[in-house]
Computed example of a mutant assay.
Amino acid sequence: MTLVLALQANPEPLPESVAASADALGDAANHAATVAGAGHIDFLQLVLHASLPVQLVMLLLLLASIASWLIIFRKRSVLGRAEREAERFEERFWSGSELSKLYAGATERSRDVGGLEAIFEAGFREFNRVRQRRGVDSRAQLEGAQRAMRATASRELDGLEHNLEFLANVGSISPYVGLFGTVWGIMVSFQGLANVKEATIATVAPGISEALVATAMGLFAAIPAVWAYNRFATKVDRISTRYDAFSEEFSSILQRQAHLEE
């Protein structure tokens, strides 16, 4: 009992070897905690350290993504304006206004008409032009107006569909382009193991990580392009159906007017 009390009263320091070992373990634990806390992905460093072909693939995908987003914002504005203009013109057309007044408003010099109004203007202009000929029956007048409306509707839809093909191509090709960059980067990484005696996961991990960024960029470019293409293609189909329905209804009105004038 006396010996225990004496040891507690006068504790002896640990040997130097044991203290050094404890300090080393503490430093190792602190280092591991620091690495775990800083375990984030630096995409910029991965891109800068990638091989030249992989960097070219990433640059191509980046340009494709930027072009896709520019088209997406512009196409969203164009289709939205086309829908609003169609709604406004249909309200004026079915409000009981005279066809001649609507035609006069559509042919004003200071106005640039499009959509349903352009279809109406083309059909009514051709109807009046054919009607002024002598000896032309009502069927010929109606057929001329319908041809003019179909041609104008085709031009309007072609403008709405402009650049949709690019979005479709980016959405379908970008993943394969990114996969090509990934395969190339992995081949380069494994080729570098030829001069290494002991191959470990730490040897090839940096190269594989750099290569996988190409696949990620391919998906980053493809997913918005596919979504936008599907959405805009559906909108164009709805607008096309709207144009066709208006052309049929306006043809019926012109047919009744032609029969009344006979």
Rank of each mutant, 00 (worst) to 15 (best):
T2C: 02
T2H: 08
L5F: 07
L5A: 13
A6Q: 15
A9V: 01
P11E: 05
P11G: 09
E12M: 09
P13N: 11
P13R: 12
L14G: 01
P15W: 00
P15A: 15
S17H: 09
A19L: 10
A19M: 08
S21G: 12
S21M: 02
D23S: 08
G26M: 02
A28Q: 09
A28T: 10
N30A: 15
H31C: 04
V35I: 13
G37V: 09
A38K: 15
A38D: 11
G39C: 03
L44F: 11
L44S: 08
L44A: 15
L46Q: 04
A50Y: 02
A50G: 14
S51H: 03
S51Q: 10
P53Q: 06
L56I: 12
A64R: 02
I66N: 03
W69M: 09
I71C: 05
K75H: 01
R76N: 15
R76K: 10
R76F: 13
S77G: 15
S77T: 10
E83C: 01
E83Q: 13
R84N: 10
E85S: 10
E85W: 00
E85F: 05
E87D: 14
E87Y: 06
E87Q: 04
R88A: 14
F89M: 07
S95R: 13
S95L: 09
K101W: 01
K101D: 15
L102F: 10
S110G: 14
V113W: 03
V113C: 08
L116G: 03
L116H: 04
E117H: 08
A118F: 07
I119W: 02
E121D: 06
F124C: 07
R125H: 11
F127R: 05
F127E: 01
Q132N: 08
R133H: 14
V136H: 00
D137K: 12
D137L: 00
D137F: 06
Q141M: 15
L142A: 07
R147Y: 12
A148G: 09
A153W: 00
S154D: 11
L160E: 04
H162W: 03
E165F: 12
F166T: 12
N169P: 02
V170G: 04
G171T: 05
S172V: 10
S174W: 01
Y176S: 08
G181V: 01
T182C: 02
V183P: 00
G185V: 07
G185N: 03
M187E: 03
M187L: 15
Q191T: 13
G192I: 00
N195D: 12
K197M: 07
E198I: 11
A199R: 06
T200K: 06
I201P: 02
T203I: 13
S209M: 00
E210G: 12
A211Y: 02
T215D: 02
T215A: 13
T215Y: 02
A216L: 08
M217L: 15
M217G: 09
L219T: 11
A222F: 10
A222I: 09
I223M: 05
A225R: 05
V226P: 02
Y229F: 15
N230C: 08
F232E: 05
D237A: 14
S240D: 07
D244Q: 15
A245P: 00
A245D: 11
S247F: 03
F250G: 04
S252A: 14
R256K: 14
A258V: 08
H259S: 10
L260S: 13
L260V: 03
